[in-house]
Design a protein around this nucleic acid. Structure first.
Length: 270
DNA sequence: ACTTTAGCCTGTCGGC
DNA sequence: TGCCGACAGGCTAAAG
């Protein structure tokens, strides 16, 4: 499941193979993604040089002279460098054919991913209202504390809200709350100033650790080089219902919160 | 203004 | 062996 560390791992994996090269042809085999891919998109990017690949939250931006090609991996998407001769499989929806023969392939079984073009990507409807980057200066204990004021929503749901902070999905929200020893169901407005500081530090730490380990592979995530991520081995609570908490030994609890699984330690998290 | 819910998709897995 | 329902989940839009 691509969250920020997986997207960043992908970015780092593919950048050396595509930056500085020119898109000879963009092949869209399946336009039915999260939003239908604009039929005019291949023409808009053809013959353009990829100057850089940047990331905003979970979006990857292929910066070409006239704007950016925006890619979101959804929950099952991946981008890989493949041999152009390799036949496309059922879920290989898009190919970037580059001028030196390199082929970048977008594969996404569940088709929750997206592919769009914007001349000013940060002003695009989907990116405009995003909160600060969790690893940037805009995300601080003060900021998060301000966001929590008067909110009755659970702290876990608040940190997963991309308008508050980007890139924190279910896995890392669970892990960060465990590290910060905060109960996921606690009302955001009842988290102390000191604890929001800890939470910010925990979110940063868990994301950095995951990036260092190439992301988390649960079933099918692979980076741009096709290798899985190893952070799964470092998970303390996620997907560990019934197993012993690494801190106190008590069984990790699983509860459904807002349609998604929440894992936590009843003793360690308050 | 905030909070909740439905919906988009398909592969995988447990139960029968 | 095969069928079926539940589950996985980021994100938006609409409803409450």
């Amino acid at each position: 499941m691509p969250e920020l560390p997986e997207v960043e791992t992908t970015r780092r994996g593919i950048a050396p193979h595509v930056v500085g090269k020119t898109i000879e042809r963009l092949i869209v085999r399946e336009p039915r993604l999260r939003w239908p891919v604009d039929p005019g998109l291949p023409a808009m990017v053809a013959e353009r040089r990829i100057d850089s690949i940047s990331r905003r939250g979970k979006y990857l931006l292929f910066n070409i002279g006239t704007g950016s090609l925006i890619v979101h991996l959804g929950m099952s998407g991946n981008l890989r460098i493949v041999d152009a001769e390799q036949p496309a499989g059922t879920h290989d929806h898009v190919d970037w054919r580059l001028d030196d023969g390199t082929c970048l392939r977008f594969s996404d079984p569940r088709r929750f991913g997206s592919l769009l073009f914007a001349s000013a990507p940060l002003e695009h409807r989907l990116l405009r209202a995003l909160g600060p980057e969790p690893l940037g200066d805009g995300f601080s204990g003060d900021y998060l504390y301000d966001c929590c004021r008067g909110r009755r929503t659970a702290i876990k749901q608040l940190i997963m809200n991309a308008r508050i902070v980007v890139g924190v999905g279910n896995i890392y929200a669970n892990e960060a709350l465990f590290r910060a020893r905060i109960h996921p169901f606690r009302a955001a407005g009842r988290v102390s100033r000191e604890r929001t500081e800890h939470l910010v530090a925990a979110i940063r730490a868990v994301l950095c650790d995951a990036i260092e380990q190439g992301g988390t592979t649960l079933r099918d995530f692979v980076g741009g080089d096709g290798r899985p991520g190893y952070f799964s081995q470092s998970l303390c609570v996620y997907d560990r219902a019934g197993l012993a908490c690494a801190e106190c030994g008590r069984a990790v609890r699983r509860r459904v919160q807002g349609q998604r699984a929440t894992y936590y330690c009843v003793d360690c998290q308050r």
